[in-house]
């Protein structure tokens, strides 16, 4: 029988779908019987989804223009 501690230690690989079918079946059996682990798995999955869905903010115009200026200088120096 899988304990909650065993479940937690496999949680990342479970959420990344990075485990074999046999272990997956064991983990899934555990969460149907253990509401706490179900909640942890569900909310951890949502945590990852929320961060993945975060759009990168556009780079500020001043930061970009300083970057491009620095690069142009570098390119000119290398090309010489």
């Amino acid at each position: 029988m899988l304990t909650c501690k065993d479940f937690l230690s496999e949680l990342s690989d479970y959420l990344d779908a990075n485990i074999d079918a046999e272990l997956r079946a064991k983990l899934e059996r555990h969460i149907t019987e253990c509401p706490n682990c179900w909640v942890i798995a569900d909310t951890t999955r949502k945590t990852i989804q929320i961060y993945k869905g975060m759009e990168p903010c556009a780079i500020p115009a001043d930061v970009e223009s300083r970057l491009m200026k620095a690069l142009e200088k570098k390119m000119a120096a290398k090309g010489r």
């Binding site: 937690l8 230690s9 949680l11 990342s12 690989d13 959420l15 942890i40 909310t43 951890t44 990852i48």
Partner: peptide, 20 residues
Amino acid sequence: VKSRLLRARLQLREKLTRFF
């Protein structure tokens, strides 16, 4: 990497639970 990722995810989950 795997053990740090698990901890990071669990800690973030915990922090976000307060709001969500």
